[in-house]
Computed example of a mutant assay.
Amino acid sequence: MKKLILGIAIVASAFVFGQKEDVNAKLQAANKTAMDAYNAKNYTVAAPKFMEVYELLKTSGQDDKTYMYYAGLSYALANSIDPAIKIYTDLINSGYTGVQTTYTAKDNKTGQVTSYDKNTWELLKKTSSKDYSDFKTEQSKSVESDLYETLSTLLLNAKKNDEALAIIEKGLAKYPNNAKLKEYQGTALYASGNTDKFMQNLKEQLAKNPNDATNWYNLGVLQSKNPATVSDATATFKKAIELGGNDAKLIGNAYQNLVFTTIGDDDSAVKEINAIRKTNPDKATELIEARKARFNQALPHAESWYKAQPENLDVISTLKELYSITKNQAKFNEMKAKEAEIQAKQPK
């Protein structure tokens, strides 16, 4: 699951109220604190302050959910998952899209462009043609698809896979071509143990985008876990590596899976050899040779894994074992020394 990464340009608003001074002062103070905290990346402070602005506005008769959205975003960035989930759920259920229309006009005397509410803007346009000009409207972009993406991520991070699937499916009903929601759907299906649907999901995505290395890798993982498709996994992992570009982690993981897919269930193989070593030595020798052949076949994959992740203790340990089994003492000693070097760097 990818770490939640969110960003938005939040701009300060000028409040226009026919309210008591103390209410307006509270609004201005809360808004300033929220904005300052957000800009300073102090999201823990910003989130409740944005909610305070929202509640004060609502009390004054203006249900502006933009500030609830800012609060949800800040909670998410602060990694406060539960309040973020609640706010994003409420926003989606309310039908909030974030689309707003801004009305502006230029004061011909000062040259200043100012924003107005719709009624004032229309009145100025009708009655003050000499004093004002450049009457413009601008509509903000919808954030509805972002709401579904973010809530899906939050729910997946909270291990609420069934709830995540429900939100993802609701989002895909509105945005059927949303690549992120399709990816999250696969993640949720896999996390909930529904591997058949996950495989179907991956194949559908790969049909649309056959150059997606991550989806090829995930498909290989599923194939390698199923005896009926394990033989297909090798080609699938190689496809992921081919498309992986400079993604050392993905390439390393693909090679790692290639190694262990090639070796197979070595514990069972060793148990079988030990069980018949005395009663059927010829068969045991045959199995030993077959095991060595698998290790020899896996060795180039492990060496490529090492090139992709030379500081990874798992690959160093694996290579050390492979060199031992394939009787390459010099390389075994090299990996043993490398293992000690890496371990010495580990915090104690």
Rank of each mutant, 00 (worst) to 15 (best):
residue 285 T to V: 09
residue 272 E to G: 05
residue 283 K to L: 06
residue 282 D to S: 13
residue 249 K to I: 13
residue 245 G to L: 05
residue 255 Y to M: 09
residue 250 L to T: 03
residue 228 A to C: 07
residue 249 K to V: 13
residue 251 I to H: 02
residue 277 R to K: 15
residue 230 V to T: 15
residue 236 T to I: 05
residue 265 D to T: 01
residue 232 D to M: 11
residue 231 S to H: 10
residue 230 V to N: 06
residue 243 L to Q: 05
residue 255 Y to L: 08
residue 280 N to K: 14
residue 246 N to I: 06
residue 255 Y to K: 09
residue 232 D to P: 06
residue 250 L to D: 11
residue 234 T to C: 03
residue 233 A to K: 00
residue 277 R to I: 12
residue 277 R to C: 04
residue 237 F to A: 00
residue 231 S to F: 11
residue 264 G to A: 07
residue 268 S to V: 08
residue 270 V to S: 07
residue 278 K to L: 11
residue 233 A to W: 00
residue 270 V to N: 08
residue 231 S to W: 06
residue 262 T to F: 09
residue 283 K to T: 03
residue 268 S to P: 06
residue 236 T to G: 02
residue 274 N to K: 14
residue 257 N to K: 10
residue 262 T to Q: 10
residue 257 N to F: 01
residue 253 N to W: 10
residue 240 A to R: 03
residue 282 D to M: 04
residue 257 N to C: 07
residue 273 I to P: 02
residue 233 A to N: 01
residue 232 D to L: 10
residue 249 K to P: 06
residue 230 V to K: 15
residue 257 N to H: 12
residue 272 E to D: 15
residue 227 P to M: 12
residue 278 K to Y: 09
residue 260 F to I: 05
residue 268 S to G: 13
residue 281 P to Q: 09
residue 263 I to F: 08
residue 275 A to Y: 09
residue 275 A to R: 15
residue 270 V to M: 10
residue 267 D to Y: 09
residue 227 P to D: 12
residue 260 F to E: 02
residue 267 D to E: 15
residue 247 D to P: 02
residue 263 I to V: 13
residue 237 F to H: 02
residue 259 V to K: 00
residue 253 N to L: 11
residue 282 D to L: 04
residue 282 D to H: 06
residue 283 K to V: 01
residue 280 N to I: 01
residue 231 S to M: 12
residue 258 L to A: 06
residue 242 E to M: 10
residue 272 E to R: 07
residue 283 K to E: 07
residue 275 A to E: 14
residue 260 F to P: 00
residue 284 A to R: 00
residue 258 L to K: 01
residue 284 A to C: 09
residue 250 L to H: 03
residue 278 K to M: 12
residue 274 N to Q: 15
residue 253 N to C: 05
residue 267 D to N: 13
residue 284 A to T: 05
residue 285 T to E: 14
residue 263 I to H: 02
residue 276 I to E: 01
residue 244 G to M: 00
residue 242 E to S: 12
residue 235 A to K: 07
residue 270 V to Q: 12
residue 240 A to K: 04
residue 281 P to T: 07
residue 279 T to Y: 06
residue 227 P to I: 11
residue 254 A to E: 01
residue 271 K to A: 14
residue 256 Q to L: 09
residue 265 D to K: 00
residue 285 T to K: 15
residue 233 A to F: 03
